[in-house]
């Protein structure tokens, strides 16, 4: 293990988060077995009281997980100087077999955490704990993921050794190799940009429909679900576009496909301006759609549709920001990939 302060901070966050989630899922188990809103028994009141604590604790953990993802990637980029052959975060993540799995687990945790935060926020608006059962079922589903995530992060950091020989992004994101990274890199730039543009238009259209308050409920619901699906589509298409086209425009180099080097200072941290709205837009869109899959409780008759609409609008705004940054990158770049 490398005793590097950001690593210690991430391990600390993982351990705190993992411990709190384990404790909260024990409570969730008990709650799901005994929850009965109609009962006035002492045990039910104690449960109701305790849900406030668990909600607060979980909101704290989830917010911490979201911050940890950003810190994890940022730190991986900085630590590249310590490994032979590493130029950016790819080298650092490749320095151990657990690196990329840990990153994927953190990303999954980010989305799971945002969904939970949305459910918790909506639940807090109803006076009769309307989404409590759903929330705690979701928590029980997230708990194993959190354990896996903490385990992978810990394994990764323990496995890291200075001076490890690793491979740089140039050898991973090359069209003429095997694997997903290579497949993404070999995507033709024009079709990748076309795909993301189509995905953004779809997400924008469905999102605006889902966010407008004037449509009938049934249509809103369909639009919301479609927007959720479109958000996931945007996420995938955006990753392909970043690897196969946008990063090339940033580096002004026709063969450098790395989606991590754009996070570097040399490129003005433009990667953060791309990824943050992309992740936020996807999480918000998926959150809005998740709300619409639930049966509408009476106490949330007004609040839930308004929150779901707000999430859809916020998601569209985030995607618009992503689109603006991407367009600015292509516009300002000196590289001509298409036509010319």
């Amino acid at each position: 293990m490398i005793l590097h302060p950001p690593i210690l901070a991430l391990v600390l966050a993982s351990l705190i988060g993992c411990g709190l989630i384990a404790w909260a899922s024990l409570f969730a188990w008990r709650l799901l077995a005994r929850w009965d809103l109609a009962s006035g028994a002492e045990s039910q009141i104690a449960l109701e009281r305790r849900t406030y604590l668990v909600s607060t604790v979980m909101a704290f953990v989830m917010a911490m997980q979201i911050g940890a993802l950003v810190l994890f990637v940022f730190n991986a980029d900085r630590m590249a100087a310590m490994f032979v052959g590493a130029m950016c975060a790819v080298g650092t993540l490749n320095a151990s077999v657990y690196g990329f799995p840990a990153l994927y687990a953190k990303m999954a945790m980010f989305f799971a955490a945002s969904l939970w935060l949305v459910a918790d926020h909506v639940d807090g608006r109803g006076r009769d704990y309307p989404l409590t059962r759903f929330k705690y079922r979701l928590l029980l589903a997230i708990a194993p993921l959190a354990l896996v995530e903490a385990g992978l992060s810990l394994a990764y950091f323990l496995d890291l050794k200075a001076d490890t020989l690793t491979s740089c992004c140039g050898s991973l994101f090359t069209p003429n190799k095997d694997g997903i990274a290579a497949e993404m890199a070999s995507f033709d730039a024009a079709s990748a940009l076309g795909l993301i543009a189509a995905a953004l238009l779809l997400a924008g259209g469905t999102g605006l429909a889902a966010g407008s308050g004037r449509l009938p409920t049934g249509v809103l619901r369909v639009a919301s679900l479609a927007h959720g699906a479109a958000s996931l589509f945007v996420f995938g298409a955006a990753l392909i576009a970043i690897v196969s086209a946008l990063s090339l425009y940033v580096y002004e180099h026709p063969h450098h496909h790395c989606p991590f080097c754009i996070l570097k200072r040399e490129y003005g941290y433009v990667g953060f301006a791309l990824y943050l709205p992309l992740f936020a837009g996807t999480a918000l869109g998926a959150g809005g759609a998740m709300l619409r899959t639930l049966p509408l409780p009476a106490s949330l008759n007004v609040a839930l549709p308004s929150i779901a609409g707000g999430l859809a609008r916020a998601s569209v705004a985030a995607f618009a920001l992503f689109a603006a940054v991407a367009a600015a990158i292509v516009w300002r770049s000196g590289l001509i990939l298409i036509g010319g």
Binding site: P6, L12, T56, G67
Partner: peptide
Amino acid sequence: DALQVATLGFFTVVPYLAAILVPIWRTAS
């Protein structure tokens, strides 16, 4: 830089907030 500030936040603010959650709930409930 942002990495240092973020690391610092994780080391100081996170433990503090984690420590006061339970007492706050106990007071509030």
